[in-house]
Design a protein around this nucleic acid. Structure first.
Lengths: 209, 209
DNA sequence: TTACAAACCAAGCGCTTGCTTGGTATTGTC
DNA sequence: GACAATACCAAGCAAGCGCTTGGTTTGTAA
């Protein structure tokens, strides 16, 4: 195999069976599904597309998943699980609230524009394609994720370092950061991930105090 | 008719045939289409849904539009035309660059969360459903719209009132403002449109200097 | 070697989709 | 009141959709 993922956080989640191993049949399918869902949208992606992407027949998909929607849900659930763990780890390493926020922003930008980027985009854009009951499930997981942000932003607000309301700031950041997936292309020179993080902090007036 | 739209900007665009009269058959269809496309997504909305929404048979749609995609494109094109005009008018009334930016933010929030909100959401979320040639057409119109923002932000940057780069600030604002459609509910009490605009300005550190 | 489950294929069913067709009301104009 | 042009209906076609089915291959363990 050309690439072995050695991220210890990912490894422990795989061990706990909370996230599929990208090397397994299920994991490979979920990765391909995320890419297809992002590129063409969930509705435009057929089960035949999904099957072809991993080299099996369309009917064989239903041996692994009961419905097409179950695939979408799995992509979303596993992505949130992974990213919550990644963000938690990033935040834990920082001391001040300001550094915590910077770590969260950097980590989220990395998730959005890095390896899990396809899945993160799916999480944002394919929300409506989930059934209501699945939406509720995913939403519950997302609340944990959001608490990480809110507690940090509330701390900053107490320290009078935040211009606007913490809740609203988070919502603005959600939109601003997820939108980067439509324009940020680090490979084409220019802005690095750290540089982009600096710009976001500067926009919030948190670069120098 | 219960509601007569007397917006002079809209009226002049209708007179120039750049935007369909909401009272006409075509205009009514485009409004309903925008609503359906936002609620269910373009792909999940069938031509039968669209036809039923205006009380005709599905086949009769194709007397007004050649394809389903042409309806999506028309929604997008007319929305950009209208909003460019609205934003231009809003910006023209302001004096300082700071006030111009505030006017632009307020106007865009109003577009996103007001009457043209459905169509604005379609513009953001249904981009991929357009054919490449249609995308190019819409993109051209959007450039005019974006120049309005950039010139204002560049002016602010010259005055050293902006923390981050103007281009990046605009992109962050695009994401942040369009995302409001997923959470901002002015009718449920709380934040008014002016209040939300204040919060955005505060986030940028532009409330008081 | 045998036994058995997991993984997969080949074929296709039933349904929905965007769109077409041929014809009929409705409307505006002189 | 004649006559187009416009707006619409009723019916349905061809294609593509998610998913099912019955059977075959592959992997594993005694």
């Amino acid at each position: 195999m050309a690439f072995v993922n050695q991220n210890p956080i990912l490894q422990s989640l795989i061990a706990e069976q909370l996230v599929s191993d990208p090397a397994s049949a299920r994991g490979r399918l979920l990765n391909e599904a995320a890419r297809l869902f992002r590129d063409k949208g969930y509705e435009r992606t057929t089960v035949r597309d999904l099957a072809a992407a991993v080299g099996i027949q369309s009917g064989s998909l239903f041996h692994h998943f009961r419905t097409k929607e179950e695939i979408l849900k799995a992509v979303m659930v596993e992505t949130i699980r992974l990213n919550t763990a990644l963000m938690q780890a990033a935040a834990d390493q920082a001391d001040s609230a300001r550094e915590k926020l910077r770590a969260l922003i950097r980590a989220e930008l990395e998730s959005i524009n890095g390896q899990t980027g396809e899945a993160m985009a799916v999480l944002v854009y394919e929300w409506r394609s989930l059934s209501e009951s699945s939406q509720a499930e995913v939403l519950e997981l997302r609340d944990i994720y959001e608490d990480l942000w809110l507690s940090t932003l509330q701390q900053l607000s107490k320290e009078h370092q935040l211009g606007a309301d913490p809740f609203i700031t988070r919502r603005m950041l959600t939109g601003a950061l997820s939108w980067t997936v439509t324009w940020y292309r680090p490979e084409r020179g220019g802005l690095t991930l750290d540089g982009l993080t600096d710009q976001v902090m500067a926009m919030l007036g948190l670069d120098q105090c």
